[in-house]
Design a protein around this nucleic acid. Structure first.
Lengths: 209, 209, 209, 209
DNA sequence: AATGAATGAGTTTTCATTCAT
DNA sequence: TATGAATGAAAACTCATTCAT
């Protein structure tokens, strides 16, 4: 189901939602390029023409999925950002959101992870992707200001390390090269936070950077 | 240029190489799905029919690029693995290989990064991808055995964190969301190693894992 | 506006008329085949479904426009035919009707001129087109009988010359290859009548036909 | 067969010509909009994909037919224009060309006549249409200068009368509303010339224009 | 080895028409 | 009457692949 992070109302746009959710399933199973518009329609149980009633093209369907998903992720990230918790707990919260999304809607995650790298244009168009990265960067900066994190590390690069770690693990689950299960998810969360926050801890001698 | 890590002989397969290198450029610029076989041929300066003399299909061209690239990376990773250096230095060596490849052949990296997540089938076929991951995992395991790294962290997950960090940074360069340049490359290397090895350092209290 | 030659009552069929007039404008601007039913509805300010309340199909809309227009033209032509004026004046009257229609409703003329040749079927269905041609032919025959026109010219062919001349001039205005304006319209009328009736004048030696 | 006015070589572009000629037949029979690309290919005995090897689109095929036909007509018109014959004979020559084309290639004439009014854009793109009109206009102007034609008639309008007459007769043949046959063609030629040149004869009192 | 004409399966998209409301 | 969501046939066009030369 789409929008598992923040529930959306289905009022008045039942079929649109139906198509979107079918698209997630089909993209996840066959991949965006490999599937046909007819596959989505069939999965949704509607005529393929209806898809063009709600979306301008097959591309727009993917874009919508991205936009909704990332806007949900961004909203959640912003809520965490506004907390007064230590940076470590806040990064932990973000890791939870992303990794647990896998449990809630593996298909959605599969699509977002698999197709994100496909189109630079898509990423540019979905500005929330950047905003979510920026939120993590700000959390790290605040951690540095608060003395929780060492200051000699580029916070931008650090945010890429953090996101990259999460994405690779999701990819591992998507491709089946990494064991999945509730326990594994919890462990992954802890491991990522442990490594990244451990690596950012200030009590180590300054790097030679 | 393909095979910048290990030079390959051109003897007797000039045109094949020409096509492969053209494909890297074209895939990088337009993406695998978006480009046509004719684009590759045009870029290579040959008739498109010739491509089918050297490759069974368009897919096989991409597969070849992957195989060669990863076999080079794998070879380099194995050489590093056999070293007696500390784990940190060995991970640093692997980071160097991957990130510096960007400087040597950005198009190649662009293709590998962009299309790697595309097809699970491709990844399965290119078994070297797994082997390279396994090499990193073994380095981490040996680091744990040698007391250089803490033992309460799953080495498999840690290898994903490491690879994911590198891949995300490459993606940032590919998509232009991260500054690039010689200095940035050096800094990225150090930052990734610093964070990951710092996070794996044993002198911290055990994680609650 | 449709029916500018003979005003029609709007009683009880407001919307039908609205759609018909919108269709004229849209067909004129985009052409029959190029426009969509939705364009007509939008232009008329109604839902496209309503069109099917009044017409069986898009084709029928065009057919209606043709029928109404030609029935108006035919009615006017018949009124002129019943006059006792010389043939020349009667042809002049018909030229006036057709060419001045352009001033009154260029869109309508544009549609009729542009689409008339499209479908032989359409022309067959709109029998008034033939009837109007026949009226001109009868005027010429009567002119020959009255000694006003030479008798060695096929009246059927002559009617085609007359109609063709008018149609080509209308086409010139439609396509913008001929200057338009009140003065031009008056001149066109006179020129066509002058040439055709001059050419039909009996005081010349018989053609070798 | 296309290019019946001036024979064209088939050297090296056999299939292109084949497709073009098939298109003429199919457009003539079904109309441009009504026929499918596959119909053309089938008629030509080739795969429909080949059409796109030689033409960018279905539209381009029609445009090509127009261009070639009108360039032939124009060439013939120019040859006649350069003659030293009286204006009447030169107009007669042009009438011959256009009307006899019907006998030689009725399908081609059918297409050109039927679709010419369809697209203003097409007419604008095929500049030879205008050039051919201009040639007739120049013949009339020279006739006026030489005293063969009256001077108080707009030569431009007169050229429209002449062309319109020919076009209407062709349309009559195309639509079957006018008898056809060798004799009819000869008579049509003479009638048009007789009427138009008769109407342009100078020995009549000046028009009230 | 090399070419590029030829093929045709496959895909997106359009749009006239229907129909439940 | 009036709406516009829903349908699905149909069509243009693409492009990987083959193959005669």
């Amino acid at each position: 189901m789409l929008s598992t992070l923040t529930e959306r109302s289905n009022g008045g746009e039942d079929k649109r939602r139906l198509i979107l959710e079918a698209a997630v399933r089909v993209f996840a199973q066959k991949g965006f390029h490999t599937c046909r518009v007819g596959d989505i329609a069939e999965e949704a149980g509607v005529a393929h023409g209806l898809l063009y009633h709600y979306f301008r093209s097959k591309d727009e369907v993917l874009e919508c999925i991205f936009k909704e998903t990332w806007s949900d992720i961004l909203a959640a990230a912003r809520m965490i950002e506004e907390t007064d918790e230590p940076a470590r707990d806040r990064l932990s919260g973000i890791a939870k959101i992303l990794l647990r999304a896998w449990r809630r809607d593996p298909d959605l995650v599969r699509v977002v992870v698999r197709e994100v790298a496909r189109s630079p244009e898509l990423q540019r168009r979905v500005s929330d992707v950047h905003a979510a990265f920026a939120a993590v960067e700000r959390i790290i900066v605040r951690g540095q200001e608060d003395g929780e994190f060492r200051r000699d590390v580029d916070p931008r690069l650090a945010s890429f390390v953090f996101y990259g770690a999460l994405e690779e693990i999701l990819t591992g689950w998507v491709l089946g090269t990494l064991d999945e299960g509730d326990e594994e998810i919890a462990r992954a969360e802890q491991t990522v936070v442990e490594i990244v926050c451990g690596g950012l801890a200030p009590d180590r001698q300054a790097a030679e950077v």
